[in-house]
């Protein structure tokens, strides 16, 4: 049995969700892959849990749910996550702090510290790979450790690992898809119910599908960040958010959706990179019945390749359990590399 010691930095919805899934999947992963993940530290903004003998991940998840993480016997009040990453005897750091697309912090510092401490990094945090991709990649390489971020693009939907592990012999010529579930939900509801944008947005906010400040999603910023990650990781480009042409969905009206529908189209917010050209996010007409015409909160991505032709994957783009699927895939991938 291979013992792999992990740290989780950022114990919010995603971080604690990963802990829960690690606990629930422990036996499955042990028997199928011969790997035993041992959680040895948790980093939060107000302190850390440090426990070289292992933290029960389910217990930590439950404490977090009751907002009593600081009652854990190994809680170290006000301890800094950077110190935890430097000092803890761990193999892999799961970085799950909130996304900041301007500076990438605090995630960026956590990741750089981890690489310099010879620890692999797995993340679903879009900020750091969107603002400092090449720097992160080079630092990881220099230290002989891996940087995996499948969960940062499309939640559960496999894209980066699909390209790296399964489409190895293919050149990827183009990518297009729906990378934001909130926008997809809003446009789908507006289209099927003929409701105005503001009404559907407030409905989405009530359901927890859209944030109180929806700017990040509806203005296409989130989609653009994911495109930046794909451009850098898959096409080897060196682009950042400012290199993307972005138009959001706030101007879409029910009348426009109806006119599109009458001619056999739906309108979707599509992120696109073709032949290493400037990445683009914009509402586009998609023929009904086309593989990209998925509804609800689903994400979908279509890869244009030289050998395999078009490959399309669709799946849930958000949610703690779904994102954990990608994070665990990366964890196991690192252990098996």
């Amino acid at each position: 049995m291979k013992k792999v010691r992990i740290l989780i930095i950022g114990f919010g919805v995603i971080g604690s969700g990963v802990a829960r899934v690690i606990s629930e999947k422990r036996e499955f992963i042990r028997s199928k892959y011969g790997i035993d993940f041992k959680l040895v530290g948790i980093g939060e903004h107000n302190g850390c849990i440090v426990c070289p003998n292992g933290i029960d991940p389910m217990r930590a998840y439950e404490l977090k749910r009751e907002s009593t993480l600081n009652r854990h016997p190994c809680w170290k009040d006000k301890m800094n996550s950077i110190d935890l990453i430097k000092e803890a005897n761990a193999d892999i750091v799961i970085e799950a702090t909130p996304t900041n697309i301007n500076s990438g912090e605090p995630g960026l510092s956590h990741m750089m510290t981890a690489f310099n401490a010879k620890k692999h990094v797995v993340t679903s945090n879009k900020g750091p790979p969107a603002v400092a991709f090449q720097n992160l990649r080079k630092t990881a390489e220099k230290n002989g450790v891996q940087f995996r971020f499948e969960g940062s693009v499309g939640g559960a939907m496999p894209v980066l690992n699909l390209v790296r592990d399964t489409l190895q012999a293919n050149e990827i010529l183009g990518i297009e898809g729906i990378l934001n579930g909130t926008c997809n939900y809003i446009l789908t509801r507006m289209s099927t119910e003929g409701l105005p944008y503001e009404h559907v947005l407030s409905e989405a906010q009530e359901l927890g599908i859209a944030e109180a400040d929806p700017t990040y999603d509806v203005e296409g910023i989130d989609t653009a960040c994911k495109l930046v990650i794909l451009a850098n990781a898959i096409f080897g480009m060196n682009v950042s958010y400012k290199d993307v042409d972005v138009t959001g969905i706030t101007q879409i009206t029910p009348e426009a959706l109806k006119l599109a529908s009458d001619d056999g189209y739906v309108i979707k917010l599509i992120g696109e990179i073709q032949d290493k050209n400037r990445p683009m996010v914009a509402p586009r007409l998609v023929p009904k019945g086309h593989p990209l015409a998925v509804g609800g909160t689903l994400n979908v991505i279509s890869l244009r390749t030289d050998l395999a032709g078009e490959i399309t994957v669709t799946g849930k783009g958000a949610g703690a359990v779904e994102t954990s699927s990608s994070i665990l895939s990366d964890l196991i991938g690192i252990c098996e590399a």
Partner: peptide
């Protein structure tokens, strides 16, 4: 050309072939 005009001050939509 098909045009939909929901109201005087509101944005119109047009489908153009």
């Amino acid at each position: 050309l098909a045009v939909s005009m929901p109201g005087v001050d509101q944005h119109s939509a047009a489908r153009m072939v």
